[in-house]
Design a protein around this nucleic acid. Structure first.
Lengths: 234, 234
DNA sequence: GGCACAGCGATTGCATGCACTTTTACGAGA
DNA sequence: TCTCGTAAAAGTGCATGCAATCGCTGTGCC
């Protein structure tokens, strides 16, 4: 192929490919079941097949693409059952994290959780979906870390990333923001008083509700097609 | 390199590399922290660097090796805390599987579980460690499947495989066989009567005990070096 | 004597080419 | 017309070669 790529974002070429292809999958530009031809992708991004192959391998490990020997890769098709299964797992994992957090969080962690949570109330009042989503992610990450268990953290983050495409729309539902905050509040309260059982149940219910909210979208239109964002998105 | 390899076991070259290198890690022939040089491995197995690279990538995803950009791969170092974290996760995951199994297993699955479990009693009497270990794996796999949740199944199997090297020695402990069977019995009984809470607790306790049994070995000698099994093991 | 920098060797990362597998398309026979 | 077989085309899997990067060592300067 020709010369160097215009704008080098960061990391190795493989990392860029993982991001580029992964983004196109989660944004729906590449549709479930669609065939992922190595040569085409390589040409599309102006790299050789080698990094594309490795990227497909990683995406396969992430569960975003499916790969069959000698038959190429396709965008993973997520069935309704599998999606439900992932949300179910997510609920259980979050419950574990909340329980452990209630038992193990340091005083500093508890304080930070509480402060950030209270601060996010303002975003609810303003109806700032984008910003709230960011805080929401932070909030849950705090729970995962608070469990003080590296492996639980890994499992939880991995599952969350696999669910990412389906969670996108949840805050679009009217009133979801305030409801989310209240659910968080129950979790935080339980954690602050060290009630692990209550924290676990609250976290589980929270995810279950998100699951139902997302399922609406997933059922109708799991991945709506979109215009190709840019030549090489973040 | 030269011609074809002597004995083609199965699957692609990459699969063979994953098994070959993975085996050497879990058997302790490759020690934690040891550097994994692509060229050396390629020469060692008489393949090119390409499949070795891909295999290292997969093993990295499995958590068996650590990789840093431009700095090569090393056998993952599992700290005592991380090991504890994995066993803890395993206990929680098994508890979830047991709970779900108690609620969701079909009549056929329950019957099969019970029958196999009863059959394994004979192996305990005979003190057949090897065979019992096989049945043990089967038993747990039945629990994972019985949860009827693909994603939980995946998470559990993945975690189990990461713990594999540390579980190896558990049945060497005197009396462990009979104890394991009794613990299984509690789980089975709970599942048969649909008591999900009891099944969950029993499964969790079971893993916790295994954890402690393994921790003894892990603490003293996490990965004892061994002679290279064969040119290209299973 | 210690620190910084430049050159060099070792090793990873990526590109390219070839071989093998799978798929598809076309034609012969029923 | 349908089916089966075969051959070409497409695409994956692996090998090899080159470029880029990292780490190390030796030398010069402070």
């Amino acid at each position: 192929m020709s010369g160097k790529r215009s704008l080098i974002r960061s990391g190795t070429t493989v990392d860029q490919m993982v991001r580029a292809i992964g983004d196109r999958i989660v944004t729906g530009f590449l549709r479930p079941g669609e065939k992922l031809d190595e040569a085409s992708l390589a040409a599309r991004f102006d790299v050789s097949r080698t990094p594309v192959r490795e990227a497909l391998g990683r995406l396969s490990a992430m569960g975003l693409v499916e790969r069959r020997p000698n038959r190429g890769a396709t965008v993973a098709v997520v069935t309704q059952e599998h999606l439900a299964s992932m949300f179910e797992s997510m609920a259980e994992l979050e419950a574990i994290c909340a329980r452990f957090s209630a038992e193990r969080m340091t005083a500093g962690e508890r304080r930070a959780l509480e402060i950030e949570h209270q601060a996010s109330a303002r975003l609810v009042q303003l109806g700032a979906e984008e910003d709230y989503e960011y805080f929401n992610t932070e909030f849950h990450t705090r729970l995962y870390r608070g469990a003080h268990s590296k492996h639980i953290y890994e499992l939880t983050v991995m599952t969350r990333s696999r669910l990412a495409p389906f969670r996108r729309a949840q805050f679009m539902l009217p009133g979801r923001l305030a409801k989310s905050w209240q659910e968080h509040d129950v979790i935080v309260t339980a954690i602050m008083r060290g009630d692990s059982a209550a924290a676990g149940h609250a976290a589980k219910d929270h995810v279950s509700i998100v699951s139902e909210a997302s399922a609406v979208f997933a059922a109708v239109d799991p991945m709506k097609p979109a215009a190709d964002p840019i030549g090489m998105s973040s």
